[in-house]
């Protein structure tokens, strides 16, 4: 009998501790939910602004896109007129998760590329940047794959080109569908 009682007390204590901890977590969550959402919004906005400084605000474009397209945002200037699109893509270079932000005009011309995050072997992305691939891709509106990569960093170059090509296609699709 005593055994049953001690088990009941133990279970009850544990349940009580769990309940108090969960309540504390729910409280903290209420407190931090706002700032966390705000941080995520700011992070996206800043990343978008880096490639499209002319826009004041960004709106997420809904729709389903090809694999590798993470999100499409439409930039709006202070008067609410469209300034073009920013596409976030995640492709594979030498390693996975090569995340880019590409600014594309409504006619499908690339005019800005920023690397958000990458896990390429150290130094390769720098090589690609110094090799001028990003400059060569700006102004392109089709056949990104035909642009010359950077020798010695072919896979990283291809990852970047794939991401930009995906961005161009996604924007063309958005514009075509109105």
């Amino acid at each position: 009998m005593r055994n049953v009682k001690s088990i009941a007390v133990a279970a009850l204590t544990l349940t009580l501790i769990c309940a108090v901890v969960v309540a504390a977590l729910a409280g903290t969550n209420l407190l931090t939910k706002g700032p966390i959402a705000e941080n995520e919004r700011l992070a996206t906005e800043n990343a978008c602004k880096a490639v499209m400084p002319t826009a004041a605000t960004f709106e997420t474009v809904d729709g389903t896109f090809a694999d590798g397209v993470v999100a499409v945002y439409e930039g709006k200037d202070a008067d609410g007129a469209s300034t073009g699109y920013v596409v976030k893509t995640s492709t594979r270079g030498k390693s996975k998760d090569l995340v880019l932000m590409t600014a594309v005009a409504a006619d499908g011309t690339v005019y800005g590329i920023e690397v958000v995050s990458e896990s390429e072997t150290a130094g390769y992305m720098n090589k690609v940047k110094k090799g001028g691939l990003f400059d060569r891709l700006v102004g392109v509106s089709e056949e990104c794959g035909a642009v010359d990569g950077v020798a010695g960093a072919t896979k990283t170059s291809n990852g970047v080109k794939d991401g930009v090509a995906l961005a161009v296609d996604a924007v063309k699709e958005v514009v075509a569908n109105g």
């Binding site: 001690s6 088990i7 133990a10 544990l14 501790i17 504390a24 977590l25 903290t28 931090t32 941080n39």
Partner: peptide, 30 residues
Amino acid sequence: IPSMVRLPAYIVVIAGFTTIVQMLLKAFVP
């Protein structure tokens, strides 16, 4: 805390504070 459920109880408390730290960092020092 009864000694029988000592370790699970400790783990719950520690997990609680860990999550609080995680949320605070996400919110204020992302």
